[in-house]
Design a protein around this nucleic acid. Structure first.
Lengths: 120, 120
DNA sequence: CCGTATCCGTTGGGATACTG
DNA sequence: CAGTATCCCAACGGATACGG
C-alpha cells in the first residue's frame, strides 16, 4: 500500500527520469563504464538532438546523478561521468528494462487486441 | 552494457510510464488491492484532473496493464483493475520507489549545492 | 569540440462546462 | 457516477544557425 512518502518518491522519480531521453542517456553513459564525451554520447543515441541532450545532461547534473568534467588541455573536451548515486540507480532500472524485454511481446499483443476491438 | 534490444525496451518503458501521472495512478490502484473506481481514484490522487486521469487510464488499458469493468446494475459504476501483467510491474517499480525514498535527501542536497554554486 | 540562441510546430495538461 | 468536449496556455522538443 502506497504511503504519502511513496507519492513524494514517485514525484521525484518522475522529475528525475520521466522524459523521452533520460533513460537512453543514462544507458548510453553506462555503456562506456560510466563516462562519455558529449558528441560520443550524441552519436550513441539515435535520433536525439543537441538541444535535448544538453538540457537533459544539465538536469542530470543538477540532480547529482552525473558530473561534468572539463579538460582544457589543448582541444576542449568535456566528459560526463555517472556519480555513485547515479550508479546506484542502475540496479533498479535494469530490473525495469528486464521486465520490459520480457513483456514487450505481450504489450504489443495487447495493443493489437485493443485496435482490432475498436474496429469491430 | 546496453544492447539494441535494451534501447527498444527503454522506449517502451517511456511509452508506458514516463509521464506525470501514470506512476501515481498505478500506485493508487494498487492501494485497494488492484481495483478502484474512477472517482475514488481521482480523490486518491491529489491534484489530478479528470482529463488527465481519463486519458492516462485509456493508455494503461490500451497497453493491457489495467482493465475496465463496467457494472450497469442500477447506478453506473466502472471499476479499473490491474491485470496480471500490470501486477508484474509492481516489483521492479517498488524497487525504484524504494531507491527514491532512500536517496531523496541526497538528491535534494545536490540540488541545493548546484543552486548555491551558480550564485557564486 | 561543446555547447547556446532562436524559431516554431506539437503535445501536455489544467479549468470549465456539458452529456448519458 | 463516469466520462467527453472545448478552450487555452506553457512546456517539449526538433531544426537550424551561431559562438567560445
Amino acid at each position: 500500500m502506497a504511503t504519502e512518502q511513496d507519492f513524494a518518491a514517485m514525484r521525484l522519480l518522475v522529475d528525475l527520469l520521466a522524459d523521452k531521453w533520460t533513460l537512453p542517456i543514462l544507458g548510453a553513459l553506462c555503456e562506456n563504464g560510466g563516462r562519455q564525451r558529449f558528441n560520443a554520447l550524441k552519436r550513441g543515441i539515435a535520433g536525439i538532438s543537441q538541444k535535448s541532450l544538453a538540457s537533459c545532461l544539465k538536469r542530470l547534473e543538477f540532480n547529482g546523478l552525473i558530473e561534468r568534467i572539463v579538460a582544457t588541455k589543448g582541444q576542449l573536451s568535456v566528459e560526463y561521468r555517472v556519480t555513485a548515486i547515479g550508479h546506484s540507480l542502475e540496479l533498479p532500472i535494469n530490473a525495469l528494462i528486464l521486465w520490459s524485454n520480457q513483456n514487450i511481446d505481450v504489450i504489443m499483443a495487447a495493443r493489437e487486441a485493443s485496435r482490432s476491438a475498436t474496429l469491430t
